[in-house]
């Protein structure tokens, strides 16, 4: 068939691509994909065979409410963290040694210790100062695991966000500052109108990663007795011993993270379309 075509128009047709051989790579790739397919089919059959309508009745809505709690926790922490990160980043960028040192210490502490230890430090550690907190009237805040989780997560993410902000501001070329001052723009105007917009575009990707990290990290809240998605999952498992609880949680987390990643890629592509060549 191909030979006929080639004899008819020998100059015009490109040579037929060489047939794809079954190289080792190709065999390995297909074997691995078959394994994934088997694992997926096994999981699916397990989910169908052992599906328990009673379990769904009892815990289905709890999963939904846990999902919402997770989103609230992450959203609130990220928002508070974003506000807190502004002064911290400003301190990191300031020429004052003392301010810079304090901010560096703050960031180093929250980035260098596990989130779970920070959550314990706030939630259980607040008990050490119970009398003091009662005296100044803020014990109600530290008694409640929800506030403690938001408190710990906000401080944690503010440290990360401050570093993202600082890095991206410092990344903007010096020439931008110089050009603005040559045009007679004041420093604040230069910062808000010229430097920050460019910095935020650079910061877009790390910010997206930080949101994902926060969603994943928020599972830790379940350990200090918050019934977020992970907390509801653990409760359902400890009562029913039905392992499907964890599978459902895994699916929900994967969907949440993947959806966010896709949406974020879209946003980034849209916002940086003027930079495409």
């Amino acid at each position: 068939m191909t030979e006929q075509v080639e004899t008819a128009r020998p100059q015009l047709t490109a040579p037929a691509p060489p047939p794809r051989r079954w190289s080792n790579e190709r065999i390995l790739g297909h074997v691995l994909m078959v394994l994934w397919a088997l694992a997926g089919a096994g999981l699916l059959s397990y989910m169908i065979r052992d599906f328990n309508p009673e379990f769904m009745d009892r815990y289905g809505m709890k999963f939904v409410s846990g999902f919402i709690v997770t989103i609230e926790l992450v959203g609130l922490s990220l928002a508070i963290g974003a506000i807190l990160s502004l002064p911290i980043a400003a301190m990191r960028l300031s020429s004052s040694r003392i301010l810079g040192g304090i901010a560096y210490g703050f960031v180093y502490f929250f980035r260098g210790t596990p989130l779970i230890a920070q959550a314990f430090l706030v939630y259980y550690g607040a008990g050490s100062f119970r009398d003091f907190f009662s005296d100044i009237g803020i014990w109600w805040f530290f008694r409640d695991p929800w506030y403690c989780a938001v408190f710990a997560f906000s401080l944690n993410t503010s440290a990360y966000q401050a570093e993202i902000l600082r890095g991206s501001i410092q990344n903007v070329a010096r020439g931008q500052w110089e050009a603005a001052s040559a045009l007679g723009l004041s420093k604040p105007v230069t910062f808000w109108k010229i430097i920050l917009p460019q910095a935020l575009i650079v910061a877009l990707r790390p910010y997206g990663n930080e949101v994902v990290l926060m969603i994943k990290g928020s599972a830790i809240a379940s350990i200090i007795t918050i019934y977020d998605l992970m907390g509801e999952t653990r409760r359902a498992f400890s009562r029913s011993y039905d392992f499907q609880a964890y599978i459902w949680a895994a699916i929900l987390y994967l969907v949440m993270v993947e959806a966010l990643r896709r949406v974020w890629d879209r946003i980034e592509a849209r916002l940086t379309r003027h930079l495409k060549r």
Binding site: G29, M33, L35, I215, I220, S222, M230, A249, A250, V257
Partner: peptide, 18 residues
Amino acid sequence: RAAANIYTTIFRGLPELL
């Protein structure tokens, strides 16, 4: 490539605790 990408999608998307 697809086999490797499935792996990383799963384990980068799940919370470490889960």
